[in-house]
Write a protein that binds this DNA or RNA. Sequence first.
RNA 1: GGCAUCGUGGCCGAGUGGCUAGGCACAGCUCUGCAAAAGCUUGUACAGCGGUUCGAAUCCGCUCGAUGCCUCCA
Length: 493
Amino acid sequence: MQLYDQQVLKVHNSLSGQKENFKPQNPGHVGMYVCGPTVYSNVHLGNCRTFMSFDMIFRYLRHLGYKVRYVRNITDAGHLVDDAEDGEDKIAKKARLEQLEPMEVVQRYTLDFHNILAKFNLLPPSIEPTATGHIIEQIEIIRDILEKGYAYEKNGSVYFDVIKFNATYEYGKLSGRKLEDMIANTRELTAQDEKKSPQDFALWKKAEPQHIMRWPSPWGDGFPGWHLECTAMSTKYLGETFDIHGGGMDLKFPHHECEIAQAEASNGKSPVSYWLHANMLTLNGKKMAKSTGNSILPGEIFTGENTIFSKPFSPAVVRFFMMQAHYTSILDMSNDALLASEKGYHKLMGAMAQVERLNTANHTHMEVTAWKQSCYDAMNDDFNTPVLIAKLFDAVKHINLIKEGKESITETDQKTLLETMRQFVHDVLGLEENVTHGESTEKLGAVVELLIQMRKKARENRDFTTSDHIRDQLAELGIQLKDGKEGTTYSLG
RNA sequence: GGCAUCGUGGCCGAGUGGCUAGGCACAGCUCUGCAAAAGCUUGUACAGCGGUUCGAAUCCGCUCGAUGCCUCCA
């Protein structure tokens, strides 16, 4: 019997606007697709939050025992800058500006992306396909949609016929828009005379002679429309219908709306059971934008090389900060908020390190089994990580009381407590101590223990100059000593 | 202008038609050689204005504000 049979997971489905019981199409298996980044610059912190949210979801599904195929793409072509500039590709533009090969740009920022996500302790997806690696699949889908009559070719470009599609299906159901309203609110755009209607979107775009990124197709040399890649890759790796599609709130319209339209037009089926959208991250109450200076790169937070925060913050602290908010809420990042999270994070990790060393007795002052279920209840409620963290802090309080000898715990409960804490903190929330375990850490620990013994002796001799010197010097190195009833412990960093 | 999400105590953030999370900060106390750590105690907040209700911060309406999107813009 798997955990997922014992726990009832509810997820907020953007398509229905409701929390629904999660039931995968194939029992025990989950197919999940998340829109990845366009690799034309350093990964945005807001993007990190989105990917971190889905990483947590991926982790929890796995923890429940599901076999999850998690696909997250890399957009390395097909993203246009703006139509006024005859549709220059973002990658190509960056390449031109930096005098690089397009693939050089892709390589550089893909590496940056992976590097940052690894620091945030994100698990790699099961498959990470690229748009340029799936041109053939995209052409096939265009062909299919053309055949079904929901697209038309014009001067070497192919457009999706939204009005025709809307006659049979419903365009706008995800974002709550009505096609009539959209038509009424359309602003005048230039250079789109090829389209029958302004609502139509490109499936294939003809490449102008100077365009570097181009592929041959039945309609001439060109490149695929942005929305198509996700349809092609999700279909290829997860099938015509799959369980979860995720992405940032900003992608709901038009991107995800178009994905639904493409899939329905080509195979008549709604592709996704549950649409999940992660909300945005703001900085000091304002949206992040390079133009206003209200912006920061993840790397700049880790190193402290920025003018926004008073000190560097570790990736784990930032991750903990983000996990303290629900993924569907707008989260505001500020210096004060990070400082608060940093203290809370260390308190949590400090208590966790104590569980193993707890003295056991024949009575437990804590309903461990009920507490454990309350952790699941939090996560089952649409991945409510802030509530989960509140539950974890309940345990922290008990751990500290037991450590002080004011409460007790049985050996069985201690085992359960430790296992549950580890599962939720490490496996689900993805929070790991930054300290790398190894020979050097062991040696460091031994040295600190030695100093603790020396300090203890000094204190017994009332040589407080020496004892305080040891304490203060260690503190300067980031090693904090904690005196307790049962002796002195320490924490690194 | 339209669509969407939201507006919670000093800060960050859960939650819910009545029993009012959690973290951080602040104050007092306990412990301590002094600190730190830890524990205990104290906070009745829910943008504004109306309405529904025995009762709303939670439901409805309006106003104000924030964030995202409005078609080739991620």
